[in-house]
């Protein structure tokens, strides 16, 4: 099976973890996906190698960014029926609070979807969704 067929199989099986496992960098970071009552949640399982500032300690802005960006991609792939993988064009990360050395969760929503591009907003949290640690707005090419 090629990648798009494997992705279609994971979606047919309603198995977001199988979708996440298709992507090497997501696997390397420990990024998974699951479904809850509100939809798809991307999870960054904590690992000591994710730390950016060992004094605080806090997660590296880059790994938080990777989680937000991957959450947007997972959301588009899970929700869309595109025959190609979405491609990131631009993304803006906002760092709202320092992310502590524990699991991080992210949920994305499509703000506007056109034929060729989608605007996606993502929020990441650790304790509770109402206290986001980071947010992102990205533009993705769909065709």
């Amino acid at each position: 099976m090629n990648l798009l067929e494997e992705l279609a199989a994971a979606k047919l099986a309603r198995d977001p973890a199988a979708m996440a496992a298709l992507f090497p960098y997501a696997r390397y970071l420990g990024l998974g996906a699951r479904l809850d009552e509100a939809g798809l949640v991307t999870v960054l399982r904590h690992d000591p190698t994710h730390i950016g500032n060992p004094v605080l300690p806090a997660l590296h802005g880059g790994v938080v960014g990777a989680a937000l960006e991957t959450a947007a991609l997972f959301h588009l792939m899970w929700a869309g029926d595109s025959a190609r993988l979405p491609k990131i064009v631009t993304i803006t990360f906002e760092y709202l609070r320092s992310a502590r050395p524990r699991d991080l969760f992210a949920r994305a929503e499509v703000t506007k979807q056109g034929r060729r591009v989608a605007h996606v907003s993502v929020a990441a949290w650790q304790d509770e969704p109402a206290r986001p640690v980071a947010a992102a707005h990205g533009v993705f090419l769909l065709t």
Binding site: N2, L3, L22, P24, Y25, Y28, G65, E69, L85
Partner: peptide
């Protein structure tokens, strides 16, 4: 590094790799 592959078909590195490098 092999782990940086974002899209296993094009084998291009994940945007997240570039994000971490740029943030650093």
């Amino acid at each position: 590094r092999e782990e940086f592959v974002g899209n296993p078909e094009t084998r291009a590195p994940s945007g997240g790799v570039i994000t971490t490098l740029i943030d650093t």
